[in-house]
Amino acid sequence: MRENQNTIEVALILQPNAQLSVVYGLIDLFKIAQFCNEKLEADLSTTVRITHWDIAKNGKTFECVFDSQPDSSKASPDFLVIPPTLNQIISSSDAVIWTDWIKRQHEEGAIICSVCTGAFLLAETGLLNGRKATTHWFQANSFQDKFPAVRVDTNKLVIDEGDIVTAGGITAWVDLGLHLTERIFGKAAMLKTAQFMNVDPTGRDQQNYNRFSPKLAHGDENILIVQHWLRKHYIDKTSISDMAEKAGLGERNFIRRFQHVTRLTPTQYLQKLRINQAKDLLELTKKNIEQISWEVGYDDVASFRKVFHKHSGLTPGEYRTKFWVA
């Protein structure tokens, strides 16, 4: 049992090349959350303690290298946050020492959280197997290849599985911090914290930012031929039989192999190619929605709007307002 039931410890681990904006940003966010909670005159007895943990010099144990309440007695963390790395993702061999410790904290009751590519280290523990999780959309294929037992959903910015919380995106530490603020202090304090920081409260989706990155390094040459062909002919009226013929395969065999290596049906894949191009045109040109619809292969503008919203979570007009740079 914890000695101080009103002190909530949020521990961050300093894996190699950890993103420091996450490590230090969460210190500031929880200071602001504490301030906002006090202004609300809510539960003034609850405080957030931030600790940072790293591998000790002996290379076998862990030590606390930062403590926002150094005079307080030590206790197991309530939340353990795994920040992302900005360059090379930690290897499975280097992750071993961390995974054993993370699993031990989970067994002792800590809620395990990850930000962006920190999900790779979390997945190495096996705790994500059979669960839904998110990571940065750019790493979705790599993550799914390495951890097929995890149900990846990079449309979501934060996925809360109760004892496991994952956040996707490089700056999603803000969204995770606000999410944890709500769990610790309540919704009113979370909203006040978001307002104070001039950021949107939790609830936004990573789907708005996703760009399709086709999986090409799969080794199936017949399917790769079709992928390269579709990249040039995505605006054409293309049928499954056309694709199968291009691959030199029967239709059923083509569909099976295509889905196996891309994790998409041929129709879904073609839609994603078209929506990617539409996003480019919305961001970089002043062409109207009807023109863009035709240029990416949709004769029916209403159908284009429906498919665009399905893949981006925004209407074409909303997307242009948010991302137009021309």
Rank of each mutant, 00 (worst) to 15 (best):
V199K: 05
V199R: 04
V199A: 03
D200M: 10
D200T: 03
P201R: 07
P201W: 01
T202S: 08
T202L: 06
D205E: 14
Q206K: 13
Q206N: 14
Q206D: 13
Q206M: 15
Q206G: 13
Q206I: 07
Q207V: 10
Q207C: 07
Q207L: 14
N208A: 08
N208F: 15
Y209A: 08
N210R: 15
N210T: 13
R211S: 08
R211W: 15
R211M: 01
S213C: 07
P214K: 11
K215F: 08
K215I: 01
L216S: 09
H218N: 06
G219K: 11
D220R: 15
D220M: 12
N222K: 15
I223N: 07
I225A: 09
V226L: 02
W229P: 06
L230D: 00
L230S: 02
R231L: 10
K232W: 13
K232E: 14
K232S: 09
K232N: 11
Y234I: 08
Y234S: 13
Y234C: 05
Y234Q: 07
I235W: 00
D236I: 01
D236G: 00
T238L: 12
T238R: 10
T238C: 07
S239M: 08
S239P: 11
S239R: 15
I240V: 11
I240Q: 06
D242I: 00
D242E: 11
M243H: 07
M243E: 03
A244K: 10
E245Q: 12
E245D: 03
K246D: 00
A247C: 13
A247N: 02
G248F: 05
G248A: 03
L249P: 12
G250Y: 09
G250D: 10
E251M: 01
R252A: 12
R252S: 13
N253G: 01
F254N: 01
I255E: 04
I255T: 09
R256C: 00
R256L: 04
R256M: 05
R257Q: 02
F258L: 02
F258R: 12
F258A: 02
Q259W: 05
H260M: 07
H260V: 03
V261G: 03
T262N: 15
R263H: 13
Y269A: 04
Q271V: 04
Q271Y: 04
K272M: 15
K272Y: 06
L273F: 13
L273N: 09
R274F: 05
I275R: 05
N276L: 13
N276F: 01
N276D: 14
N276Q: 06
Q277V: 04
Q277S: 03
A278P: 10
K279L: 00
D280C: 01
D280Y: 00
D280R: 03
L281W: 02
L281F: 04
L282R: 12
L282A: 08
